[in-house]
Computed example of a mutant assay.
Amino acid sequence: MQKSWRNIAIALAGMTQCARQVEELAKTGYLKTEVFETAVKSLINTDPSSAEDVFGGLEAVQPGLSTLKDILEDHRSPGNADILRYVLGAVVLQKRLARRKDVLYIIGNRLEKVSQQVEHFGCSHDNVVSNIADIYTDTISKFPYRIQVTGEFNYLQQERVAAQIRSLLFAAIRAATLWRQAGGTRWHMLFYRSKMLAATEQLLQRA
């Protein structure tokens, strides 16, 4: 994929959107169905034609673009701390996953079955969510590094919420793969915020 700030911003928006939904779900127990379905679709979209096509179009990542804009304008805000932590965690896990071709092969095969399930049940059906969460648990959760999700104990202890969170983290890692393919690096987050902000604002005007 050709490097461009536009594609980097789209991928970051995908990560940010998943991270924000993880935060909201862990703290309130509330799941935005459209955001979750966008995440699931990104996992099973194996042949996207563009960066935005991974998520089903720019409109599908509008919430993520808005959150990304807020973070780029004030990345030191305490209100963004958990979101940033989840995004950075996804970047770390994606880098480790990329080195494990054996794990990637397993994930690819199992996601094909998820795709078949989605055709029958839809993206947010409990069977689909459980299957995606199981893939995450059996593969990425085995890595020494793990993303620690903070929130209300009563919500985090619910199996359904836990499965939804794992699915969203999985999708954030998928978006991190796109971010790497688009030329994204951690240095961009530190030294090129103005360029990413400009690209994000342009995308928001079109979303």
Results as ranks from 00 to 15, higher is better:
residue 139 T to G: 06
residue 172 A to Y: 09
residue 66 S to G: 05
residue 204 L to V: 03
residue 170 F to Y: 02
residue 73 E to Q: 08
residue 20 R to S: 11
residue 204 L to P: 03
residue 76 R to K: 14
residue 61 V to I: 15
residue 94 Q to A: 04
residue 55 F to Y: 15
residue 9 A to V: 09
residue 199 A to K: 00
residue 120 H to Y: 05
residue 123 C to P: 02
residue 132 I to C: 04
residue 74 D to W: 06
residue 116 Q to W: 10
residue 168 L to N: 05
residue 162 A to E: 07
residue 186 R to H: 11
residue 22 V to P: 01
residue 140 I to E: 02
residue 111 L to T: 09
residue 95 K to Q: 12
residue 43 L to W: 02
residue 1 M to I: 07
residue 95 K to A: 10
residue 125 H to T: 07
residue 148 Q to T: 15
residue 78 P to K: 03
residue 139 T to R: 03
residue 65 L to T: 07
residue 180 R to E: 11
residue 84 L to R: 12
residue 123 C to T: 02
residue 37 E to D: 05
residue 46 T to I: 03
residue 17 Q to L: 11
residue 91 V to R: 09
residue 120 H to P: 00
residue 18 C to A: 11
residue 32 K to N: 15
residue 9 A to N: 06
residue 201 E to W: 04
residue 72 L to A: 03
residue 1 M to W: 11
residue 154 N to Q: 06
residue 5 W to E: 05
residue 68 L to M: 04
residue 174 R to K: 14
residue 53 D to Q: 02
residue 197 L to C: 01
residue 124 S to Y: 04
residue 65 L to H: 07
residue 44 I to S: 00
residue 30 Y to I: 15
residue 20 R to M: 12
residue 89 G to M: 07
residue 143 F to L: 15
residue 204 L to Q: 06
residue 138 D to L: 03
residue 173 I to Y: 12
residue 92 V to G: 01
residue 146 R to F: 13
residue 110 R to D: 14
residue 84 L to V: 08
residue 108 G to C: 04
residue 160 R to M: 03
residue 133 A to W: 03
residue 167 S to E: 04
residue 146 R to K: 15
residue 110 R to M: 05
residue 178 L to I: 01
residue 80 N to P: 01
residue 152 E to M: 10
residue 113 K to F: 08
residue 94 Q to I: 03
residue 43 L to T: 00
residue 7 N to G: 13
residue 191 F to L: 15
residue 60 A to I: 00
residue 85 R to H: 05
residue 21 Q to E: 15
residue 120 H to I: 14
residue 8 I to Q: 12
residue 177 T to E: 13
residue 203 L to F: 13
residue 171 A to F: 00
residue 137 T to Q: 14
residue 143 F to C: 06
residue 132 I to T: 00
residue 176 A to S: 15
residue 113 K to M: 09
residue 94 Q to S: 07
residue 140 I to Q: 04
residue 115 S to M: 13
residue 63 P to S: 08
residue 9 A to S: 15
residue 39 A to E: 00
residue 104 L to W: 00
residue 162 A to F: 06
residue 123 C to Y: 13
residue 161 V to R: 12
